[in-house]
Design a protein around this nucleic acid. Structure first.
Lengths: 280, 280
DNA sequence: GAGCCTCTGTGCGTTGGCGTACATACGGCA
DNA sequence: TGCCGTATGTACGCCAACGCACAGAGGCTC
């Protein structure tokens, strides 16, 4: 699961009519694809079946806005094959991505924490499919299922780590390192080394000018770590890119993969300090 | 509660022998001061009484480290009169404050989310007193008390907002704005316009050079918004300082004060979209 | 009162990113 | 085949913050 299988190129951007590029790269865009969200997939069969009744598959179009700051959360989303960015807005026009949600997570964490209003913007960054559920139903199901609660608590924790690490990362690391990290995070979530993503959009996510991305991406390409042309990005050398990225990548990944801290040296030690839930 | 009462000067820094400065400013440093943590104070009397049996008052010394990244969380802390900084560490020596916890919160949120390991450093920034509880006991009590769960969930949400906003703030705003915001946040938590804080320490929190603080603080002082000498900082003009700070201050404060989003214009509207818990 | 430590202020040259403007190049489409 | 929109590359001056070094200045100790 750490190894990225060179999968088909995901049409991460377009919900527009099929183009030549798409025909060259038929991705898993069918809405009935049995790709599962990890949080849902980990539930006991019975609970999963019950939830399924209230879950509705939806197509996620590129640049669709799921939440806007200050607005009520109407649905939660469990990504199957898609990618959602969480953006903090400041000064009405500047934005910065603070979190990235794929099939490993859920969009709508404030609901889990008792807040029905989003304080961030949630934006579809990779088109595809997700399962969604109405907020009221979700809250009811959440109360019924300790397993779901537990899974979502753990995910909330990893999201918190991600956001905190991103804060420091944006403060201390240069664009090139951050870009490398971002590409790796995206790769992990779409499980492919190829995806569509313009420099303009990347600039928006990292909170820098497009020109800053041009420069950083150019440097990575010259080092033969990535390759890109007009919105098609390929990771050529994953390990090399990891070396080019800041350590933030590993820190966050470790917490997400194993629920344990990223500073530990022990490579695969089970998370002994992770506590049991619901057994009191 | 929005209005800061000009209270006694808190000895926010020193756990050293009493100095001239301390004698001039006798603060509420007695461990038996009946100052309450807001999360605890809001619990039903019976639950509060039960918790009290497992809570232990502790003195919080300046620069004491409560958690270190990767280490197990042994206690949770409910600040009474003290301030705790949450710091993300990167590259082994750089640090950035991503959260600030006073009497309105609790230190040890990962435990609430099922993770027994901290991914950040928690550092006492304002000396004083807190109530603490052993992790295992805390988890047991948490399971017994829906009220405590609810309160902590809500607090976790506001902390998440704070961290996310700080991420964007550090990316887009200049040191002077961020310093102003930080002073206001500290004021709100210690409920005093005066506190002790060297420029060196401030630089550490904001992730900038000490000289950067000198420049920014000098500018604020020239504008007669603050006054400081050798570690004693006074806010002279609160509203003026708010104007000098970035909007991030208000955004976070609004969420924390009322559990509602900071972008809304409605000044005091009760949080209609906040959802009920534990009533299914 | 002298000495000293700590805290604060100032002055360099450097740099990463900003804002803006314009130049090139790819690829779909007529 | 040529057009055109979009994506990418380059250039310029500007500025906030950096790293480093050193100069005052307040307040405690002896």
């Amino acid at each position: 699961m750490n190894e990225t299988t060179p999968g088909p190129l995901l049409a991460l951007r377009d919900a527009r009519p099929e183009t030549q590029a798409d025909r060259n790269n038929p991705g898993p865009r069918t809405a009935h694809a049995p790709v599962e969200n990890h949080l849902l997939a980990a539930l006991p069969r019975a609970e999963y079946q019950r939830l399924l009744a209230s879950l509705e598959p939806v197509t996620m179009a590129f640049e669709e806005v799921l939440y806007e700051p200050g607005e009520p959360i109407r649905h939660v989303y469990f990504p199957s094959v898609c990618l959602v960015s969480l953006l903090t807005l400041v000064d009405r026009h500047l934005a910065l991505e603070v979190g990235l949600v794929g099939k490993e997570g859920m969009v709508g964490i404030p609901l889990v924490l008792g807040d029905g209003v989003s304080s961030i913007r949630a934006l579809v960054q990779g088109a595809g499919v997700a399962m969604r559920m109405e907020s009221a139903i979700f809250l009811r199901e959440l109360r019924r299922s300790p397993h779901l609660q537990h899974a979502l608590d753990r995910y909330t924790n990893s999201l918190m780590v991600q956001v905190a690490q991103t804060a420091a990362c944006n403060r201390f690391h240069v664009v090139e390192e951050r870009l490398a990290r971002w590409l790796l995070m995206t790769r992990d979530r779409v499980e492919s080394n190829d995806f569509r993503m313009t420099q303009e959009f990347l600039a928006h996510m990292l909170g820098v000018r497009r020109v800053g991305i041009t420069k950083a991406a150019g440097a990575l390409q010259r080092r033969a770590l990535i390759k890109y042309t007009r919105g098609n990005i390929s990771i050529l050398d994953g390990p090399g890119l990891e070396a080019a990225a800041c350590r933030c990548y590993q820190v966050v990944k470790n917490v997400q993969d194993r629920g344990q801290d990223g500073y530990s040296k022990r490579p695969k030690k089970p998370a002994v300090a992770v506590l049991e839930y619901g057994k009191g």
